[in-house]
Design a protein around this nucleic acid. Structure first.
Lengths: 332, 332
DNA sequence: GATTAGCAATCAAAAAAGAAGAGTGCTATT
DNA sequence: AATAGCACTCTTCTTTTTTGATTGCTAATC
């Protein structure tokens, strides 16, 4: 258990380090607390022994350890009101009634990336909980047809079919079959229905049924994959912890890697009242030198995760506030 | 006018420098030509005076100048057969009949980026020469409607409309109007027709006509913008000319900048038989340290530009060959 | 007259050495 | 328990030295 003064010192060190990006010397703390640097040094020593602080070399100031950041986030961080300017910039997005939900999310996280210099991530299940509403067929020439798939929440996907392989009638019949039999089915269950209910029937009377089946399979498959959107990647360059070319490359490659990015959504810890999770350094699967702050959102149309990635030396409270604000706004 | 031997030496220096990424010493050349290093040094001196070569410092080997690269590309480069392995990898894409054209282009340029370690760019006019084929309306709930716009070449765009603002009938009538009056119009001319032929009519009887007009305007606007697709950005990290963090950042920012990327398509020089253009260093608008090699393609569906971006020390002949091959394949 | 051998001169890059400064840990004192 | 004082450590910056690659020039050779 840390003493009150120890907490105070830890907090000041974390805050100073976030601001200055430089190991914090005892002198800097003793200015703010009314005691001498020697006293602070003693406390810093014990905080280091306890694992909350680290040194970069024997005679350097102190830097928060991951455990130190964790303690700060869990116990010391104050969530003040969101900065007025930040709110103002975001509000222009939320007030714009013209925008579709997905645009609102992207644009607001673009703004967060811009104002914080961190990197935003949006993971959404394009068609979570969407059900097939209607498939329509639009012939566009003698040799080509466009098939349009619409869900009950307004999500649309399309696919071109060439008539060299299948006849227009076969397509129309197949689509009618799908419309009759599996409209209303959730998107992620459609492909099994397609296989067991549609395929056997079209198999009988459609010549190139294999090809037709594959085309629809692809469309539905595509609809049920997750969307990954990373905004403000170039902000990575702005932080001094990533001033080494190999480091930046590493992170860029991870930001481009689907598996890694989808893993942001995985370890959902429930024990968090505000529903915003912070993963510091080794706690995330991305990179030991970054922190990921994320939250999930649910709307009647969509379901997804938004996250901010930055150096461990991140403005934790500001980012938590921003995410919280955005989450609430998009859930309205 | 360069002597035969001077050409030989320039060519060898360019090739060696491309391979070794290190100023080329006279000794390296005299191994290949049968004469002494002193002779080569003399020739190198005159080539430098003429502007084809440069030194990094007084006693360094020689590096091709931009003029040297230019001379190499215009006069010395041999376009041998495309490497069998390269062809093989690409062929798997072109042989796949299932893929849509845009996927074929993206995937083949993805492969080029992978095998060369350069960066690929695809600029396409989504709906170049596309004409409006049909607009259809799919109601998806009591409060929401999806409007689908399809062109004669199978390009699809959609837009969600909320019924809080406009009635379903108003939408249907407007769509009928558009279908009756401006189907067949090229996409990039539609918005002026929309303004002068549709807006006045709906203005009379639709309450929220402004909002409805804007919605359609947005869709068509969106359809007539150009698509920019950059593949293999992270390959930038792999070249030693970009081993400085500021340099990489610069290039990344340019690769993300629409204006800069669209400018790749601008200066079209016709005097090039093979239709493949090479812009070395200052010749391009991107960055003095890169070369851009590009070509335009035309198909019945689409019209666009593909380009490869790499260091000036680029495998010119290989890239030209690859682009030429891809261009021919997609134009089939 | 072109080519070559030989050699001093040049400069980058790497390694070593030195100087300055920031900040600590420890000890003795308040 | 808190503090003043000071030697010690280690980084960073600057300077010097060393090494090695490669050139340009001169004089000899083909």
């Amino acid at each position: 258990m840390l003493s009150k003064r120890q907490k105070e010192i830890l907090k000041l060190i974390v805050i100073s380090y976030i601001k200055l990006a430089h190991p914090v010397p005892s002198s800097l703390i003793c200015d703010k607390l009314k005691c001498s640097s020697a006293t602070i040094r003693n406390e810093m020593m014990t905080l280091e022994e306890l694992g909350y602080l680290e040194k970069t070399h024997t005679s350097s100031g102190r830097v928060p350890s991951e455990m130190g950041y964790r303690y700060y986030v869990d116990n010391l961080m104050e969530l003040k009101e969101l900065n007025g300017e930040d709110v103002f910039k975001l509000q222009t997005i939320f007030d714009n009634q013209q925008l579709e939900l997905s645009d609102v999310i992207t644009k607001s996280l673009q703004i967060v990336a811009d104002i914080t210099s961190y990197t935003s991530v949006i993971l959404d299940e394009k068609s979570h909980d969407n059900k097939l509403k209607e498939i329509s067929v639009v012939p566009i020439s003698n040799t080509e047809v466009v098939v349009l798939v619409v869900t009950d929440k307004g999500f649309v996907e399309h696919k071109d079919l060439r008539l060299t392989d299948v006849s227009l009638d076969d397509i129309k019949n197949t689509v009618k079959l799908i419309n009759d039999l599996i409209v209303g089915t959730p998107i992620d269950e459609i492909n099994s229905k397609l296989e067991f209910e549609i395929k056997p029937i079209i198999g009988k009377y459609v010549k190139q049924h294999e090809m037709l089946y594959n085309a629809f399979y692809d469309v539905f498959q595509d609809m049920s994959t997750r969307n990954i959107n990373v905004v403000g990647k170039n902000n990575i360059f702005k932080h001094k912890e990533f001033n080494e070319i190999g480091k930046v490359q590493d992170i860029f490659e991870k930001l481009d890697d689907e598996k890694t990015m989808l893993s942001i959504n995985e370890n959902n810890d429930q024990n968090n009242q505000s529903d915003i999770s912070v993963y510091i350094g080794k706690e995330n699967n991305l990179d030991d030198d970054v922190t990921v702050i994320k939250t999930n959102y649910k709307t009647d149309k969509d379901n997804g995760t938004i996250a901010i990635i930055g150096p461990k030396r991140m403005e934790y409270s500001r980012v938590v506030n921003l995410l919280d604000y955005i989450k609430k706004q998009i859930e309205r």
